[in-house]
Design a protein around this nucleic acid. Structure first.
Length: 317
DNA sequence: GAAAGAATAT
DNA sequence: CATATTCTTT
């Protein structure tokens, strides 16, 4: 561990000067991206100097077409306003993981990790009397360059309230029943989001739901901050039938990556986590509400040296 | 074989 | 604790 990607966007501010047009569909329209607000995929994001300094070759092709391709998966967007939220990042050198905030995507990095230690040997689980195959997984730990880079280790994803909301919405619209990782992932249409990411989150979410049902209306457990603050759509409830459920309409997904600079400076956190003394629900990951005008992105991370830029990786497979 | 889900690991 | 990863089952 050590690396984290934080996807956060949103800013309670209206895009352009246009006022009064976010009544009903506000949810999704909150941040309709402007061509200008969107991640400039078409242009080099790494300063030339840096690039050369680290021998980073400019990504070959990455343009609108790529973006479209990425978003294409998402059922034809109703109004064609779908956009992919960039998330993932691609690193050129394993020993070089830096943090960088970009268009609402924050990557918290570490450095060198040289793969996992030899203690990979997982505990042998209940296996019938059968021996496993001896796998001499000889993994050429990156000879020095990343070919396709599609199989690189991705930074740890941080589910921001926005991201989670999106997740919940999608799940709701799908119906808890047919809400499976792959589909959810596709509908969320967040670039870089992997099925695994969703699966993991879904697992926890279900956990939360169940746990919640048992305890009827009751106070927010001190735990599950994120979940507790997220309204659970009615649609999300069990139902034994099969083949039922509402066939949700495709969800338009306007998620708007926002460029945010990180103003925070003073906080020097050694490690642990963001050490914000409890008491201030407004910041930290106490995703109390989406109304927060500004989410505290860079909640005091470590030092960020400028450098590698997380390239968006086409997620479609 | 891919993907979902559960169980662990970090 | 939140996510990731591995394992098992579908």
């Amino acid at each position: 561990m050590g690396e984290e990607v934080r996807m956060s966007e949103y800013d309670g501010v209206d895009d352009d000067g246009c006022a009064g047009d976010d009544d009903r569909v506000s949810e999704w329209e909150v941040g309709l991206p402007n061509a200008n607000d969107l991640t400039p995929l078409s242009q080099p994001l790494i300063p030339p100097e840096l690039a050369s300094a680290f021998s980073i070759l400019p990504e070959p092709r990455r343009c609108m077409i790529d973006v479209n391709r990425a978003s294409k998966n998402t059922l034809s967007s109703i109004r064609g306003e779908s956009q992919a939220l960039s998330l993932s990042s691609k690193f050129k050198f394993k020993s070089f993981r830096e943090a960088r905030a970009k268009d609402g995507v924050v990557v918290e990095g570490h450095e060198a990790d040289l793969a996992r230690d030899g203690s990979d040997r997982r505990k042998v689980r209940r296996i019938d009397g059968s021996s496993e195959e001896a796998d001499s997984a000889l993994r050429a730990e990156n000879g020095g360059d990343d070919p396709s880079a599609r199989t690189l280790k991705r930074p740890r994803l941080v589910w921001t309230s926005q991201l989670h909301k999106r997740f919940v919405d999608v799940v709701a619209h799908l119906g808890i029943k047919s809400a499976v990782p792959k589909t959810i992932m596709q509908l969320m249409n967040v670039e870089g989001l992997t099925r695994e990411n969703v699966a993991s989150h879904l697992q926890k979410y279900r956990l939360y739901l169940k746990r919640m049902q048992g305890l009827s209306s009751e106070g927010p457990s001190s735990s599950d901050h994120l979940f507790a603050s997220t309204p659970v759509p009615q649609s999300l409830h069990e139902s034994g039938g099969s083949g039922n459920g509402h066939v949700a309409m495709p969800i338009p997904m306007p998620y708007r990556p926002q460029m945010m600079h990180m103003p925070v400076v003073g906080m020097a956190h050694g490690h642990g986590h963001m050490g914000m003394p409890v008491g201030n629900p407004g910041s930290y990951q106490g995703f109390e509400s989406y109304n927060m005008v500004q989410q505290r992105d860079w909640s005091g991370n470590k030092f960020v040296s400028s450098a590698s830029y997380p390239h968006v990786t086409p997620n479609d497979k």
